[in-house]
Design a protein around this nucleic acid. Structure first.
Lengths: 182, 182
DNA sequence: GTCAGAACTGTCCGATCGGTCAGATAGGGT
DNA sequence: ACCCTATCTGACCGATCGGACAGTTCTGAC
């Protein structure tokens, strides 16, 4: 069982997030995390039941926000839905950069995790919200492009300034969608 | 040393490409590949010096095309460069879908491989080609978005028809770039 | 039929993985 | 002083990893 939240507990999570994002879940060993956090491997497994529990605790907040975004979209349509989808995705991507990178690296093995909503189902909902009631094939492709672009551009730490990123991603996405937003 | 190209040799590459793309390089064992290709693990290591050599042979053609694209862009500017960049990236992404996915999964560990050009350097060249001589920050973000969008939308096998993808990706990218192409 | 070399495999090896466990250490309440 | 509990660790375990190697089977040239 995962124990109480101590200083080391938080440091382990921080180290794991950085290492998972950099080298992937499978590419990061418990010893790697322990060394980075400055404790023993056995101490990791005192604070977390197992390696998987670390990943779960990392992904849970992001998963919750993804689920909330999905619910929010269910009550909207037209331009409201499109705007909410873009804004929500930009927020989520910028707020959970490392989780996004972890998610992208290991989508197929993470897709059935209870702490994450079905990523592909959420994708479909977002595409629906972005393309409106006239889902032409090209509009769907553009929506995919814009979404993936937001997702990964925010996760890429290279060559991108952070400050104006939010506004520019939103603007770029809306431009991609063009009249696809009705 | 890697031996001659036989039927099994090709089957191993095919299996490895599929499995690497699905579960990542580290997430795929030699036994996994051998089972999928219908031979023994030892037979893999007869046809390839080691696990890494399989990955190298998978990535080399993609790396060559990436290098060629980079060279091609060096001799162009303005709208020619932008068009060539988008067309080249779409071609490359659609032709090497699984390699793109492998690349995205493990960018940071693949970045120093001799068979691949520096991915981030190529990215910079592409952004330059797309944004032209007036590289405003927002234009660079949009270019990033469009490039990543092309890259990953083509690699995602889910929910996307293949036929019209090429044209739509190109159109979507140009739309994102807008007047960024001069 | 014979033989050489290519193709292939069973078996073993050291390293490393995630995980267990008994015990050391430290601090607070009594 | 005492003990209880939370925290932490070294040593160890079975499984699995990538890889080595000797030996077997296949195949075409002669």
């Amino acid at each position: 069982m995962t124990r109480s939240a101590t200083a080391l507990h938080a440091e382990i999570l921080e180290s794991a997030a950085r290492l998972f994002a950099a080298h992937g879940f499978r590419g990061t060993s418990l010893q790697d995390i322990a060394s980075d956090a400055g404790c023993s491997k056995a101490s990791l497994l005192y604070h977390f039941t197992n390696k998987d529990a670390i990943l779960t605790e990392l992904l849970t907040p992001a998963g919750r926000e993804m689920a909330e975004l999905e619910e929010r979209l269910a009550g909207l349509d037209g331009k409201d839905a499109a705007r909410a989808a873009v804004a929500g995705l930009v927020d989520l991507s910028l707020h959970f950069r490392r989780q996004v990178k972890i998610l992208v690296q290991d989508v197929d093995s993470l897709i059935n995790r209870p702490e994450l909503p079905d990523v592909y189902a959420l994708t479909e909902r977002l595409v629906d919200a972005l393309t409106g009631r006239s889902p032409t094939p090209q509009a769907r492709v553009w929506a995919w492009m814009a979404m993936v672009g937001i997702f990964l551009t925010s996760a890429a730490e290279h060559a991108l300034p952070d400050s104006a990123l939010r506004a520019e991603l939103t603007r770029g996405a809306l431009r991609t969608l063009g009249r696809g937003t009705d």
